[in-house]
Design a protein around this nucleic acid. Structure first.
Lengths: 195, 195
DNA sequence: CATTTAACATACAGGCTGTATGTATGCAAT
DNA sequence: ATTGCATACATACAGCCTGTATGTTAAATG
């Protein structure tokens, strides 16, 4: 007599992974990566460590899954807000969408603190589908279009601006007024174009 | 018959701490914080774990000492290059000095990756004496002087630009051409002033 | 010179990670 | 429907690491 029987293995896997990812997300956000042990994670997820290590090769792999979900949500938000207009307008819309998407609780912690620290910026770039970076780069290129600015310079600019975007997202998530930072980013971008 | 006798306890402490900090610095840069155990550190420093835990309350405290040394070196470089002129010129000189000071091997790793991740941005701000931030803020305020830009806006701008500075330092330490990034930062700053 | 104190060295306890092994259930083919 | 295999776990174990407690030696102090 079993207490629980699953319809299919696929559903079972799906459910277990989801529980683990949700529990891990919550605990990582609360207590950071290093200080959150797998025993605590599986307790909250109501499975055993055996299940965890069956589905994920190690603790970092579980974090990767958490981060990937988070990054995809942000990318979708940017894309949905940026699509369907000029690259320049996409940049404007996408900028606001990014900073706002980053406001769901724990998101800046996961994507801008824990992720880069534990997985490295390299792997983070691979996980990120690059929607933010692409929108930014396309917008800048379009704005510079008739200008003779070198493509390399634009990429450098995009790199620097994306760092500023991240800082803006963090500041807002820490309590700063979003409008102020969105406007500041807009001025920064427009200023960089004027030449 | 002892193999080694120290002149004074002060010198002995000084030497031991220096060895530990140097060994830790090297290993943290190579292998990151979490993957570098205290046994490896004391082995390289040629002391025992007892010495480590006598001088530092825990592993994070040792990292703090490493970071503090590093931050002070950067601050001194900025100050020495920025002092003695107008705030605006100080900003220009300080900008280049910052990015160049960050090029000593391992420095971006320690100050911009490991430090914030392990100690948190809060504690990092306390360790940092804020030379970079002050130079930046003073420069911007001076540039805006006759303008009616609100002080709050300038602080936001400084926050965003400092994130860009950090990214520039990382990019250059990863192999990018310093001149390109220094120029890009200059343009970004000047653009933000034009209004 | 006796005593205290600082600077270690050594030994130990607890916790955590990853692996190895055991078990039950779904699933596929006959 | 039964047999055989693969999947999805659960449990047990080994190794490492951190921080603490305890012991020892040399320096400082009166």
């Amino acid at each position: 007599m079993q207490s629980k029987i699953y319809k299919s293995n696929k559903d079972r896997t799906q459910a277990t992974r989801a529980q683990l990812i949700a529990a891990a997300r919550e605990l990582f956000v609360e207590g950071g990566y290093a200080d959150t042990g797998t025993p605590a994670i599986v307790k909250k997820a109501k499975v055993t460590r055996g299940a965890l290590y069956h589905h994920f090769v190690d603790k970092a792999d579980l974090l990767t899954a958490v981060i990937a979900e988070e990054a995809q949500a942000v990318a979708e938000s940017i894309i949905s807000h940026a699509e369907g207009t000029s690259a320049i307008q996409s940049l404007k819309n996408g900028s606001r969408a990014y900073i706002e998407a980053m406001q769901v609780p724990g998101r800046t912690r996961l994507l801008l603190e824990i992720g880069p620290a534990v997985l490295g910026t390299n792997l983070m770039r691979k996980i990120d589908d690059g929607a933010a970076h692409r929108t930014l780069l396309d917008g800048l290129k379009a704005a510079f279009d008739d200008d003779q600015a070198k493509s390399k310079d634009i990429e450098v600019l995009a790199d620097l601006l994306s760092a500023a975007f991240d800082r803006a997202a963090i500041a807002v998530s820490a309590g700063a007024d979003a409008e102020i930072y969105v406007n500041a980013m807009e001025r920064l971008i427009e200023g960089s174009l004027a030449r």
